[in-house]
Deep mutational scan, measured.
Amino acid sequence: QWKVGDKCSAIWSEDGCIYPATIASIDFKRETCVVVYTGYGNREEQNLSDLLSPICE
């Protein structure tokens, strides 16, 4: 189960590419979260089910 502060990978809606991110907040009722893309600072809402394991850098 994901928690705030977890590192993950998420698909950015603008280009469909996968980027490393950190979970900033979680809404368990809606099963969504807000991620912050590492190195970019962009925030975006994602479905918890769409999150991927962190990418090894």
Rank of each mutant, 00 (worst) to 15 (best):
Q1M: 12
Q1R: 14
Q1K: 13
Q1I: 00
Q1A: 10
W2C: 14
W2D: 15
W2L: 14
W2P: 15
W2I: 15
K3M: 11
K3Y: 13
K3A: 13
K3T: 09
V4T: 09
V4H: 07
V4L: 00
V4K: 02
V4A: 01
V4E: 14
V4P: 14
V4M: 00
V4F: 01
G5V: 03
G5T: 03
G5H: 02
G5C: 12
D6S: 00
D6I: 10
D6Q: 00
K7D: 12
K7N: 11
K7T: 11
K7H: 11
K7W: 11
K7Y: 12
C8I: 10
C8W: 02
C8Q: 00
C8K: 00
C8D: 00
S9Q: 13
S9I: 10
S9W: 15
S9C: 15
A10D: 05
A10W: 07
A10Y: 06
A10F: 06
A10S: 04
I11E: 04
I11S: 01
I11D: 04
I11T: 03
I11L: 05
I11M: 08
W12C: 12
W12D: 03
W12E: 05
W12M: 04
W12Q: 05
S13T: 08
S13N: 06
S13V: 09
S13H: 08
E14Q: 13
E14L: 13
E14C: 09
E14Y: 15
E14K: 15
E14T: 07
E14W: 13
D15G: 06
D15M: 09
G16W: 09
G16D: 05
G16H: 02
G16F: 08
G16E: 02
C17V: 01
C17R: 15
I18A: 03
I18R: 12
Y19A: 01
Y19K: 01
Y19D: 04
P20W: 11
P20N: 14
P20G: 07
P20Y: 11
A21F: 06
A21M: 04
A21Y: 01
A21I: 11
A21W: 06
A21V: 08
T22V: 14
T22S: 03
T22P: 02
T22H: 03
T22N: 04
T22W: 11
T22Q: 07
I23R: 01
I23L: 00
I23Y: 00
I23A: 03
I23C: 00
I23Q: 03
A24Q: 10
S25K: 03
S25G: 03
S25C: 08
S25D: 08
S25P: 04
S25L: 10
I26P: 09
I26K: 00
I26Q: 01
I26N: 04
I26G: 02
I26C: 02
D27P: 00
D27M: 05
D27I: 05
D27V: 01
D27N: 02
D27K: 01
D27C: 07
D27Y: 00
D27F: 06
F28L: 11
F28S: 11
F28H: 14
F28T: 12
F28W: 15
F28Q: 10
F28A: 12
F28G: 09
K29P: 06
K29Q: 13
K29S: 12
K29N: 12
R30C: 04
R30K: 13
R30W: 10
E31K: 14
E31N: 13
E31P: 03
E31T: 02
E31I: 09
E31L: 13
E31G: 15
T32H: 01
T32Q: 02
T32W: 08
T32G: 04
C33H: 00
C33D: 00
C33A: 15
C33Q: 00
C33I: 08
V34N: 04
V34T: 06
V34Q: 01
V34A: 03
V34Y: 03
V34C: 03
V34H: 01
V35L: 06
V35T: 04
V35N: 02
V35Q: 02
V36P: 02
V36D: 02
V36G: 01
Y37N: 03
Y37L: 07
Y37C: 10
Y37P: 04
Y37M: 06
Y37I: 05
Y37T: 05
Y37A: 02
T38Y: 10
T38F: 08
T38W: 11
T38V: 10
T38A: 11
G39K: 08
G39P: 10
G39A: 09
G39I: 11
Y40N: 15
Y40F: 14
Y40A: 07
Y40W: 13
G41A: 05
G41E: 08
G41L: 08
N42W: 15
N42K: 09
N42A: 13
N42F: 15
N42D: 12
N42G: 09
R43T: 13
R43N: 07
R43V: 10
R43I: 11
E44H: 02
E44P: 07
E44V: 03
E44M: 10
E44C: 05
E45W: 07
E45D: 03
E45Q: 10
E45V: 12
E45C: 07
Q46S: 02
Q46I: 10
Q46C: 05
Q46P: 06
Q46E: 06
Q46F: 07
Q46V: 10
Q46K: 15
Q46G: 07
N47C: 10
N47K: 14
N47R: 14
N47D: 05
N47G: 01
L48K: 02
L48V: 06
L48I: 06
L48M: 02
L48W: 07
S49W: 09
S49C: 08
S49A: 13
S49V: 11
S49R: 13
D50C: 07
L51M: 06
L51S: 02
L51D: 01
L51E: 02
L51G: 03
L52C: 05
L52D: 01
L52V: 03
L52K: 06
L52R: 07
S53F: 10
S53K: 12
P54F: 09
P54D: 09
P54L: 09
I55N: 09
I55H: 07
I55Y: 12
C56S: 14
C56A: 14
C56K: 08
E57K: 07
E57I: 12
E57L: 11
E57R: 07
E57N: 11
